[in-house]
Design a protein around this nucleic acid. Structure first.
Lengths: 192, 192
DNA sequence: GTCTATAGACGGATAGAC
DNA sequence: GTCTATCCGTCTATAGAC
């Protein structure tokens, strides 16, 4: 792998583990096995390298999610598959965790890929919910955007609960709770 | 206010804004208007001061939540009140954000108050859900612990979505979505 | 109790040799 | 392209005067 690639990879790992403020160029270089000169030759500095790393992570996450969301099954089943897909729960979300970083949030450049990724996910989920609503799988009273946001929030918040307790169990519990609320019943379209 | 109190307050603010790794003793001292000597006289060091600050924040959050959760209303209304209570959404959760901090998670001492606070909230919410289930306000098929975790996760994840987009709207959307799923219908106890 | 002085390591970046 | 040397400021903590 080329040196710039190794630098981006090391940065991605460290951003995931320690966030932007917690990651130093020195740590990146050590992990990548490169010297200072290499980094400043290929990148303008820490923010520039972080931007490349965040964009890469965002692309990858989007591709992973797309594979599940475009998969087979009813709308409910696809949302279920998204929620139950294997995750390294205790590591948290490599994109979501960046929203807790003051310097990422303060920089519109660094925040943009984070925002776009979560926004894309929300729209994608919202369309699936609408689809399920048209098919009568979900209650007509539900709103696609709202359910999509709740699904995404449950995932992001599930990571918080899991990391607080030091166990992935809390994530799974929250997801099961949401799924039990979302589960299709026989007569959603019954008149109130 | 005494010097130790001012130090704790400054630390609480900075932990909320920048997290543990992003907060330096120097910044704390500047905000508190104190010198190095004061801080190391009253506290053993940065971890010790942070622990005092986190404990204080945890206590306060618990008291705030308790006021809403022990308030009047049906179980659904109390959960609704908790979800809709006024929040400084873009600042995030002063307790939840600490779970994204590598040094907080790595220290069982610093993590303990975070874990305990979220755990307490979950149990408190779970009991309210169970209560609503017994009263027939919630479907018998729902699990108190699971719904409680989903409620908490929606809040924590709502902060993530809001901070990503730079607007509190996403938080509100997620909360509305969850409430629409949780809203009492007329016939939950109807046989499937 | 609070202050200043000092310490050694690290943060982020530049310069210039090879 | 990559390396080492160097820079100035900050990080966390200790020492010791007042």
């Amino acid at each position: 792998m080329s040196t710039p690639e190794r630098l981006i990879d090391s940065t991605r790992e460290l951003l995931w583990e320690r966030g932007y403020v917690g990651t130093s160029p020195k740590a990146i270089l050590e992990r990548a096995g490169a010297g200072q000169g290499s980094m400043y030759h290929h990148f303008k500095g820490k923010p520039d390298l972080a931007l490349a790393a965040i964009r890469r992570t965002a692309e990858e996450m989007r591709a992973t999610a797309e594979a599940v969301l475009d998969g087979p099954g009813t709308p409910y089943e696809r949302i279920e598959a998204y929620l139950l897909r294997e995750r390294d729960v205790l590591r948290g979300c490599p994109i979501g965790r960046l929203t807790m970083d003051p310097e990422v949030v303060a920089s519109s450049e660094l925040r943009a890929p984070v925002d776009q990724t979560l926004d894309w996910l929300r729209e994608r989920l919202a369309r699936i919910v609408e689809e399920g609503r048209e098919q009568g799988q979900f209650a007509a009273s539900l709103d696609g955007e709202e359910i999509a946001a709740a699904v995404l929030a449950t995932v992001q918040g599930g990571y918080v609960l899991a990391r607080a307790s030091g166990s992935p169990a809390a994530f799974d519990t929250a997801v099961r709770g949401l799924l039990s609320l979302l589960a299709p019943h026989e007569n959603h379209d019954r008149p109130a």
